[in-house]
């Protein structure tokens, strides 16, 4: 069984399942929207520079909404131990992890894109000139988040009150990711070029590599009985 094909099969199944009800996506988006609205009441937008504020709001909203969808990564597998079906197959465990990571990443990218769009409307900034740059920031951060989230979701899906556990584990570890994301977003929204945020993007890439590698190596340990 070709490794990449295995990864793709796992990812594809998840994505096809999601298209039945769009359950995960819709809950995630709804939560993101609600958080954005709450921010509108929580912060006085007239007193702050839009660029500073929007980045912060975006990068609180995205992680919190994302955790919701990430916890569900393994729900279908845990329900009737379908995970055993995956483990019994001639498939490397890490391929299961990467497949899940891929489908989670796609969901997070959709979340990111739509949240960016909503933010552009709520905060009144022109998305078009910054879309490519912001898109890159979202992509790189979503990757790190998905890498960590998929690994921790393996743990949390097994635990009772697992959603709480996922929040407790994922958010602290993701702090540097969020920090880098904000530091990358603010200059871009203020009209500066990608060159200025390159160090932060490089840090994000480094984190992506570290966390994905760790996930690939450690996933197998979490799936044993």
């Amino acid at each position: 069984m070709n490794y990449l094909r295995g990864v793709w099969l796992v990812a594809r199944k998840d994505l096809l399942s999601e298209t039945r009800t769009f359950e995960r996506l819709s809950s995630m988006l709804f939560l993101a929207l609600t958080i954005l609205v709450i921010f509108n009441f929580a912060l006085d937008f007239s007193r702050w520079q839009m660029a500073d504020l929007a980045a912060g709001v975006l990068w609180v909203t995205l992680p919190l909404a994302a955790v919701l969808a990430l916890h569900d990564s393994f729900r279908a597998e845990r329900e009737d131990q379908a995970l055993w079906g995956l483990l019994l197959a001639p498939l490397d465990e890490s391929a299961i992890y990467l497949g899940k990571l891929l489908s989670n990443l796609l969901l997070l990218l959709i979340l990111g894109a739509l949240t960016l769009g909503l933010s552009a409307v709520f905060f009144n900034f022109n998305l078009v000139p910054v879309a490519a740059g912001l898109g890159l920031v979202v992509l790189l951060n979503a990757l790190g988040f998905a890498a960590l989230g998929t690994l921790f979701a393996t743990l949390s899906s097994r635990a009772r009150r697992g959603e709480v556990l996922l929040h407790l584990l994922l958010l602290p570890v993701a702090i540097p990711l969020i920090l880098a994301a904000v530091r990358s977003t603010t200059p871009l929204l203020a009209g500066r070029g990608l060159g200025e945020v390159r160090p932060w993007l490089q840090l994000t890439v480094a984190m992506d590599v570290i966390f994905t590698t760790a996930g690939v190596l450690l996933f197998g340990y979490l799936t044993e009985e």
Partner: peptide, 22 residues
Amino acid sequence: PLIAYRALSPRQNLEFFGRLYG
């Protein structure tokens, strides 16, 4: 346990696992 996906049909389940076995 069932070791299959509750939300998928028997056909879809068998097709998925069949693909995993190539």
